[in-house]
């Protein structure tokens, strides 16, 4: 038995006009919550489809739970929530869920038992109303999302792959999804999700991989990635009336190319990245000497968002694809 839930080696997918994924390798340890981050059009969905053997890669191999993804039956242990969601609208909810369960090899009786559990847990079956007997099209959007989510997990998969799971969710369903991801992790399951929402990734993920233009930009544990990019970022906030003076000082420092590399005004504080080798104390002295009333001066780790912008920006993300949600 391997300790990797997913092992991708050098997969590529070329279409006539462009290369969607270029020689991508990934290793996701069993029991991890793993984030696949990237701007729209980065190749996330194509990668996920190759992982699930929905489309075949031109080159490379995908190993799921220690077995090739082309092995018969291996997909029965994977749960998948696609980005574009939808189920049979005219079908009764119970029948849709039983169909999805049976497709994954769950017997009808066991499927029914689990369906009822999930339906109750998500308040779709209550004393006054059993939505399971309704057709899917009669359900509200939020309820349909819940049904789809049940369908993803009904066969109790060991590896769950969620493509942009938070897009289009209302806050209540988003919270339910987050809770479920945490619970899955506690039960030893592996969860991989793609997102362009860095806040979600930062809160939930143990490890991340950032891809852009079909290529891996970086990967590793969230703490590791941050440590690697940390140590040279300063969070700075100033008292009333100091903002203008500070802006002058920072503009001058930026122009000198001496001490700082980048300034990001986050409204409540400035996130300042120092040049490599620059001394944070020298910066602090410079600012205080200019008469800026400093309230906070803290060496911080950069947010995933910052790292994302830095790395993806470096490989030339197209305008309008900043990836910030």
């Amino acid at each position: 038995m391997t300790d990797l839930a997913l092992d991708i080696r050098g997969i590529s997918k070329r279409y006539a006009e462009h290369t969607a994924v270029r020689s991508l390798s990934l290793a996701v340890p069993t029991g991890a919550v793993y984030g696949l981050l990237g701007p729209n059009g980065a190749g996330k969905t194509t990668s996920i489809r190759m992982i699930l053997n929905i489309i075949a890669p031109d080159t490379g191999t995908v190993t799921l739970l220690g077995r090739p993804n082309t092995d018969p039956g291996i997909l029965d242990q994977i749960g998948y929530l696609p980005e574009e969601r939808g189920l049979y609208k005219k079908m009764q909810v119970y029948r849709v869920l039983r169909f999805l369960a049976e497709l994954k090899g769950v017997g009808a009786k066991e499927a029914d038992r689990r369906i009822h559990q999930w339906m109750e847990r998500f308040d779709l079956t209550t004393a006054s109303k059993d939505w399971g007997l309704a057709k899917l099209e009669e359900l509200s959007r939020g309820m349909q999302q819940k049904v789809q989510f049940i369908g993803t997990l009904i066969h109790d998969p060991d590896l769950v792959i969620l493509d942009e799971p938070f897009s289009g969710l209302d806050p209540i369903n988003a919270q339910a999804l987050k809770d479920t991801v945490v619970e899955l992790k506690k039960r030893g399951k592996t969860v991989i999700f793609s997102t362009h929402l860095m806040d979600n990734a930062e809160r939930l993920c143990d490890s991340v991989c950032i891809i852009a233009r079909g290529e891996k930009v970086l990967d590793g544990t969230v703490s590791g990635v941050k440590a690697e990019h940390g140590g040279n970022t300063v969070a700075l906030s100033v008292g009333a009336g100091g903002t203008e003076v500070l802006a002058e000082v920072l503009a001058k420092l930026l122009a000198d190319h001496a001490m700082i590399e980048k300034v990001d005004d986050s409204n409540r504080f400035f996130e300042i990245r120092l040049r490599s080798g620059a001394d944070p104390q020298a910066l602090l002295r410079t600012i205080v000497a200019a008469g800026v009333p400093v309230q906070r001066f803290e060496l911080v780790q950069p947010s995933l968002h910052q790292i994302f912008l830095e790395k993806v920006g470096a490989t030339g993300v197209e305008p309008g694809m900043s990836g910030h949600g």
Partner: peptide
């Protein structure tokens, strides 16, 4: 067409070829 436009095909394709 219904499976395609409702996007259910992608869910089903993750289970069967």
């Amino acid at each position: 067409l219904d499976e395609k436009t409702s996007r259910v095909s992608e869910v089903v394709l993750s289970s069967v070829g």
